[in-house]
Design a protein around this nucleic acid. Structure first.
Length: 528
RNA sequence: GUCCCGGUAGCUCAGCAGGAUAGAGCACUUGAUUCCUAAUCAAGAGGCCACAAGUUCGAAUCUUGUUCGGGACACCA
């Protein structure tokens, strides 16, 4: 819709302009302050310029009216234009708000260490990533979703050790000297019990077995993570193992070396990341020959770029922000265009319970399990909370508040609007196919505005995706639901002389809500 | 000390590629149900947009400085 309008206006104005939405629909559906910027050029008052420009649109069919107010140019769309679009959308529901696009995107998110279940902080990145994925695909991009599995390194060793010691303590009933660092939490003890079943309890008597437990524990945790994600509607196209990429190190390393971006010092291999804005150079291979985490990420990004996507998006926790410079440096050193990689940082989530702060710590085991919250409030509410706030704001919410399943929860409000439409159709005994060809004419302002707002979904989706600001979609849906409720309260539909017309508009509203929620990974309810 | 994010209504947050009287939800007050679901709606109240300077015809929005809060500054991931 917006594209057609933009091109129509451009034809008349013959220049670039900003198209915005007026604060108040009574001004019009769209507006542009173009006369203000022309004022300087033409040395005339913006008010006069706007009036002159408005005249140019007298014969344009998609506008019912174009007027100039205080220097603004305001556009009112014609009913015919809105009606034609509505009819098309209702007939092509599966294609509604879709676009064509030939760009490809590799979207990496979650990538939590497989050393424990997902906690509530991971959920934020997960939900945002999954929704961007859905939005991108809807807009025609080829989006591949990927989870990078850190299945090597100290953390995994620590997992094995933790299970091993937990087994000694809980299965073999031995006294254990716990080190400073290890994974705490019930799940480690559970793993120890399960290990004694899957293997044998003697597995805890020989330290040599820690390696086996590491590997086994990692697999168990990965399965759990996959389930946690599936429970909130997320599946990945691909899980990429860090370990499996290690044999490509020589290849990546050679590229870096060729560009003279690595050097040896103190028996270690360093990368000159400070050449590219990093605070200092970083170690990539330790003096004992073990690769650092960064090395793994270098190989991984080399691998990503070799696959030739147009764009790469990583969603990281905000605590990784210091890591951006060195990864971008490495990508540049490998000979790639680092500006194709975009990193979205999901800020911290602080949880409250009954007003009390809940300190999260993965190490200590004192963290809120994502699965617990999913169970308490449901996946829809969980997804909605994270999608209604922008990623880079610190988010605080109270678990107890989210447990409430009443109107304070916006997801209910939106669903209620959708269910209402469905109920009205049932009451009227009509189906969408009965009204999709009804001609919309002589609509009153309220009906026309409701329809207009329903038709905004495509541009909201595009804006949401392009800006990566997921909350714009949820805000829009709340607004649309509110419009529907308001109209419902003011107008009788079933049995009225406008029944057919209103049903068509309502069907359009419901379609937008359903499509929008679907992109958020939430299925619209037909009944409450 | 350096870097990142944030400071907008009592609370949680939108708005920020500059533009018309600064918005929503929750909470609060008042009202609406012989009629399609009152799980709703309407009305009211609530604001030095952290502070200061600058750029501009115009700044919540851009720049700089200050301040407060959160986070990051590993050869851990």
């Amino acid at each position: 819709m917006k594209k057609k309008i933009t091109s129509n206006i451009k034809k008349e104005l013959e220049r670039e302009f900003i198209l915005e939405k007026p604060k108040d629909l009574s001004f019009g559906h769209y507006a542009t302050p173009v006369a203000f910027s022309l004022a300087k050029e033409l040395r005339k008052s913006p008010i006069i310029i706007a009036e002159e420009l408005a005249k140019k649109f007298a014969k344009n069919e998609i506008f019912e009216e174009v007027n100039a107010t205080k220097g603004y140019l305001n556009f009112k769309l014609s009913e015919t234009f809105l009606d034609e679009y509505t009819t098309w959308a209702l007939k092509n529901q599966d294609d509604y708000a879709k676009e064509k696009n030939d760009k490809s995107i590799l979207l990496e998110f979650v990538s939590a260490n497989p050393t424990g279940p997902l906690h509530i902080g991971h959920a934020r990145g997960a939900v945002i990533g999954d929704t961007l994925c859905r939005l991108g695909r809807h807009l025609g991009y080829r989006v591949d979703s990927e989870y990078y599995v850190n299945d090597a390194g100290n953390q995994i060793d620590l997992l094995g050790l933790s299970i091993f010691l937990a087994g000694q303590e809980n299965v073999l009933k031995q006294k254990v000297d716990w080190p400073d660092e290890y994974y705490r939490g019930e799940y480690i003890v559970d793993l120890a019990h399960k290990a004694s079943e899957d293997f044998d309890k003697n597995i805890f008597s020989d330290k040599e077995n820690i390696k086996i437990l590491s590997d086994w524990g990692k697999d168990m945790m990965l399965q759990l993570i996959e389930k946690n994600l599936k429970d909130i509607g997320i599946t990945f196209d691909k899980y990429v193992s860090e370990k499996s990429l290690y044999n490509k190190w020589d290849e990546s390393f050679e590229k870096l070396q060729k560009n003279d971006k690595t050097y040896k010092k103190d028996e270690k291999t360093w990368i000159r990341s400070s050449d590219f804005g990093d605070e200092k150079d970083r170690v990539v291979v330790r003096d004992d020959g073990r690769a650092t985490y960064l090395a793994g990420d270098i190989i991984y990004h080399d691998n990503k770029y070799q696959r030739g996507f147009d764009r790469y998006i990583n969603i990281w926790g905000a605590d990784h922000h210091g890591y951006i410079a060195r990864v971008k440096a490495a990508i540049n050193f490998l000979g790639y265009d680092e500006s194709r990689l975009e990193i979205i940082l999901a800020q911290m989530v602080s949880l409250l319970k009954g007003g009390e702060p809940y300190k999260m710590s993965k190490r200590s085991g004192n963290f809120i399990l994502m699965s617990d919250v999913t169970q308490e409030i449901g996946k829809d509410a969980l997804r909605f909370v994270f999608l209604s706030k922008k990623a880079d704001t610190h988010l605080e919410f109270d678990v107890d508040m989210l447990k409430k399943q009443d109107s304070t929860n916006p997801i209910f409000y939106i669903n209620y609007a959708h269910a209402r439409v469905n109920q009205i159709f049932e009451k009227s005994g009509k189906k969408i196919k009965d009204v999709k060809d009804v001609k919309l004419e002589n609509l009153n302002e309220n009906a026309k505005n409701l329809l207009f707002n329903a038709l905004l979904l495509p541009e909201v989706i595009e804006d949401t995706f392009n800006s990566r600001q997921v909350q714009r979609l949820s805000d829009y849906l709340i607004l649309l639901a509110s419009n529907l409720h308001k109209f419902y309260n003011e107008n009788r539909v079933v049995g009225s002389e406008n029944e057919q017309v209103y049903l068509k508009i309502f069907a359009m509203v419901a379609l937008s809500i359903r499509t929008g929620l679907g992109l958020m990974g939430i299925e619209a309810k037909d009944k409450m």
